[in-house]
Design a protein around this nucleic acid. Structure first.
Lengths: 172, 172
DNA sequence: GGTCATATCGCAACGGGTTGCATTTGGGGC
DNA sequence: GCCCCAAATGCAACCCGTTGCGATATGACC
């Protein structure tokens, strides 16, 4: 595990100032926070809370979940990450959102895709105009079935004509 | 609590055939399911899982959570309800969805609104066309700030010019 | 009415996440 | 270098929901 100096999946630069940004707000720089930041700086942008706890434990076996979650809240307030909920409702953290974006979630294969703000722009504007509702795009998580899984499913249906049958009410 | 014959918030008719629909599929009609159905038939359309467990306990103190959740799954397969996740990721059940619809969720006041399929149609079509992704509109839950809360917030900001300041990255 | 397969139940343990509170500790001020 | 207070930690209990499994009971068939 030691990863002597490489594997920087997200830009290290962005994390460099965290300590000072915390201090500037009267918040503190602690070993536990340092551990989490290090884990985050190595992550590829999409992680669940439980995964983060797990990875923190790799560096510091004494890691306590509540500490991690509380720190994640703080970092979210600093704008260093955002979270949404997967199709199953579990927390999913998005590290260093370079651009404001939402997520697409395939209920069959579980894959996640990002959707850029402009893809949702129509919806956002329409809700804003018609209801004055300001959508939090970063929290937006859309469930459904991806093209691959739809194809697989169609093929299966064609083969054993009859198939599973149920629960596809929404796949118009 | 006996509600001798009234308080039917959702159409009773829709629930009448449940027993037979279950049987037709080789599923069973049990006292526990009867209890849950009765609770659902009195509900106003939007409930959390925990609320349902709680209300079932009112009629039958011996109610076990896992039984309730499992029955909810079954009913969802029958199309009698659908679920999504609130802004906090908790399960939210939508009873007897008369029309396919998604939900809007104010992160400040917690109110929920329904959005009809056509309001999301633009998004749905665009995702279908551009990615072949079939959106599950019934599971769609959009977080953001409603017009009232936005107004309140703006007023507050105008007053003590400075305000809370943070975390509003998305309220473009 | 009795038999039997199996759907469902009850229960207990678990997983992810949150909360309240006593204790510790960062770090600014002296 | 030391003091002090608020921020943060650790811990324990809790909440919501899920899962595995042995025990029970529905309801189809006779």
């Amino acid at each position: 595990m030691r990863a002597t100096g490489s594997l920087p999946t997200t830009s290290d630069a962005a994390w460099a100032g965290v300590r000072d940004r915390l201090r500037a707000r009267g918040l503190r720089w602690t070993p536990q926070r340092r551990t989490l930041i290090e884990v985050l700086s190595r992550s590829d942008g999409h992680v669940t809370g439980a995964e983060l706890v797990e990875r923190c434990r790799e560096s510091d076996p004494g890691t306590i979940p509540s500490t991690v979650y509380r720190t994640l809240d703080v970092l979210e307030q600093l704008g260093l990450l955002s979270h949404s909920h997967g199709a199953d409702g579990r927390e999913e953290f998005h590290v260093l959102p370079a651009a404001i974006h939402g997520h697409l979630h395939c209920i069959d294969c579980g894959t996640t895709w990002e959707i850029e703000a402009d893809e949702a722009a129509g919806l956002v504007e329409s809700l804003e105009r018609r209801r004055g509702f300001a959508v939090d795009v970063t929290h937006l998580s859309i469930a459904g079935r991806c093209s691959d899984c739809t194809a697989t499913l169609d093929a299966a249906a064609a083969t054993d004509a009859g198939g599973t049958g149920d629960g596809d009410a929404w796949a118009s």
